[in-house]
Structures are given as C-alpha cells and as structure tokens.
C-alpha cells in the first residue's frame, strides 16, 4: 500500500508564558508539551482510527497535520511531498488535498454565511473555476443527501445531522485525498450517527478517500477503521491493525480502554485491568513510563525508565516495557 501521509517525530509544544522568566529558564521546562514524538503513517485508501481519552492530544494531532497548530519538531510528508516549514503557505497544497471535519458541526460553520456560500468557499479560496455557484452548491448538497434548498439556510437553522452533512460536503468540495474527521458522530443521535458513517463509507468508495478518524467511541472505530493508533498524554502508546488490537491489545492502557467499553450483557463481569483516576496533568508528566501511575501491571522499571516505541510486526508497535501477551 502506498503511503499517503507520513508523520515522523512530530512534536507540538506551547510556551507557557512569554514573560521575563522565560529568558532565565531552561528551554523545555516552560513549554507545554502537547504532542511528543509522534510517528505515524496513513496508507492510500486506509482508515486510521485515532483513539484516546479526552486530553490525550488526538485533536491536536489532527490539527497539527494540517498545520493549524504549529509543530515544534518533526516532519510531515503528504502525497510524496515533504511540508517545508510551518507557515500557512507551506500547507497550501496539502490543505487543498486534505480536508477536515470538525467535532462541533454547527460551530464549525461561519455563522453569518449561508450554506451555499460556505460550500463554494473552498473553490474560491483555491482559485478553482466555478461556473455556476448555485449549481456547484446544489451538487455538493446532493452528494450528502440534502436538498438544494439548504443552500439558502444559515448554519443555526440546521440540525446537528444536517450541519454534519454540510461539513462533509464542504470537506469533499475539492475532491480531497484525505479527510481528517474529528469525532464525526459526536452529538448526533444513534440513527443519524449510522447515516453519517454510511455516508462516509460510501464517499470513501466513490472518491478513494483515506480517513483519519479521531474518536473515543470504540464501538464506532471498531467498525470503520483498518488500523488504530492509541494515544495517551500526547504520545502514541500502541499502533496496529484494528482487528488485532481488539483481539489482543498489547499495551495495558489499550486493554483498559477496551475493557472500559460497556458490554451489553449484565452477566459478564467487568475486567481486571480497569484503570482508575484521571489522566495526569500534561504540565506534570510522570517520570518513566507516563502510564505507570494508573497501570495495573507497572513494575519498578516503569517508574524510572521511559519505554521506547517498539515495532513487533510491520505496522504494529507498542510503547511498553512489558507488553501483554
């Protein structure tokens, strides 16, 4: 499979303050390290699920890929071209060929513009020829199963599901190769969730899309993704084929995450590795393995030494000293 998107050693950090103190402090201590050393590939036509708790950096990773959050280190390669620099200009080609769907479908549409204007905006921004705006908007609406009359509505006049469809239509306006979907089903009721997922699957077939789906909904990701990447505290802890990970998670965190998913059967017992407490503050990362504070199988080594991200098979890797067998 050809690689469409390559991320290598990507880190994102924000300065904590820009005051006088910075001049006297060691460089990294005053930075909020949101993403640390992420390396990840996305194949052509592949769907990659990005999973983790709130605050694990999933959304930031998706945004950093499109340069919406500046990266502090690492390289991004898209469609055979490395992105040089962090400026908007460097990401111009990529933003034309890759689109993003946002978590809050209504809030991600500019409130004072009509749907029709929003839909043709990608064409205008990228200087694509557009003969008939109304016709182009109607075509995009039809693509996602909305009547052409929606072009005259304002975003606040849409339901969550309708706004989500508009978001999909907008993402597809320029025939992208990759779509980054941030919680594509958040805030939708179950029947609409299903419709959106079917729509996304159909469009994947029609346009040969690759998806990165950011979610914490495991039931969802199990059915849509080919591969999974599990994140914890801004790091990848496990990457592998979805089926393999669900069958046999190797990182204790992955296992705990999978076991936290409710099982629709009252007789089955809750599992052994359940984690407790909150995700630690990113300001105060645990020393050693970052998961050791909540890990059920942590040993002394985990408290002192950070594990490497180790490959054990092609496309599969885990960051743990003692991966589960």
């Amino acid at each position: 499979m050809n690689t469409l998107l390559g991320i290598a050693n990507l880190s994102v950090s924000f300065p904590l303050s820009s005051g006088l103190l910075d001049m006297f402090s060691a460089d990294r201590e005053w930075h909020l390290r949101v993403l640390e050393d992420i390396s990840l590939d996305l194949g052509q036509g592949e769907t990659l699920g990005l999973v983790g708790e709130s605050g694990s950096g999933k959304t930031t990773l998706a945004r950093a890929v499109l340069g919406l959050v500046p990266r502090s280190a690492g390289t991004i390669t898209f469609d055979g071209e490395a992105i040089a620099g962090r400026s908007d200009r460097a990401f111009r080609t990529m933003r034309r060929k890759a689109a993003m769907m946002f978590q809050d479908p209504v809030a991600s549409l500019s409130p004072r513009r009509k749907v029709g204007a929003l839909l043709v905006e990608p064409h205008i921004i990228h200087g694509e020829p557009l003969i008939d705006r109304a016709e182009a908007a109607a075509r995009l609406l039809a693509l996602v199963g909305l009547p052409a009359a929606f072009a005259d509505r304002y975003p606040h006049e849409l339901s969550g599901g309708q706004a989500r469809r508009v978001g999909v239509a907008r993402a597809l306006a320029l025939n992208p190769k990759m779509v980054l979907a941030d919680e594509p089903t958040a805030g939708l009721d179950v029947s609409v969730q299903g419709e959106i997922l079917n729509l996304m699957a159909r469009l994947k077939g029609e346009f040969g899309l690759s998806y990165i789906v950011v979610t914490h909904n495991l039931a969802l990701i199990r059915h849509v993704s080919d591969r999974l990447a599990i994140m914890y505290l801004g790091r990848l802890v496990e990457v592998g084929a979805t089926a393999d990970i669900f069958r046999m998670p190797r990182h204790p965190y992955t296992r705990a995450l999978l076991e936290a998913e409710p099982i629709p059967d009252p007789r089955r017992r809750r599992a052994s590795l359940a984690i407790e407490g909150e995700i630690p503050s990113i300001l105060n990362r645990p020393v050693g393995c970052e998961f050791h504070t909540r890990c059920a199988v942590a040993r002394d080594r985990c408290r002192g030494q950070a594990p490497e991200f180790t490959r054990y098979a092609p496309g599969c890797a885990v960051r743990c000293h003692y991966p589960l067998e």
Partner: peptide
C-alpha cells in the same frame, strides 16, 4: 480560536478573507 475560524484556516483561507468575510 473558535471552530469556524479554524475550519476556515483548514481550507487555507488567508487572513484577509478570514478578517473581512468571517
């Protein structure tokens, strides 16, 4: 930092467009 401005940036809308239109 609101979603719709980030969404515009993800489409590569330039600062002039974001300021004047959105």
């Amino acid at each position: 930092r609101s979603d719709f401005i980030v969404a515009e940036r993800s489409l590569d809308a330039g600062p002039a467009r974001i300021i004047l239109v959105h």
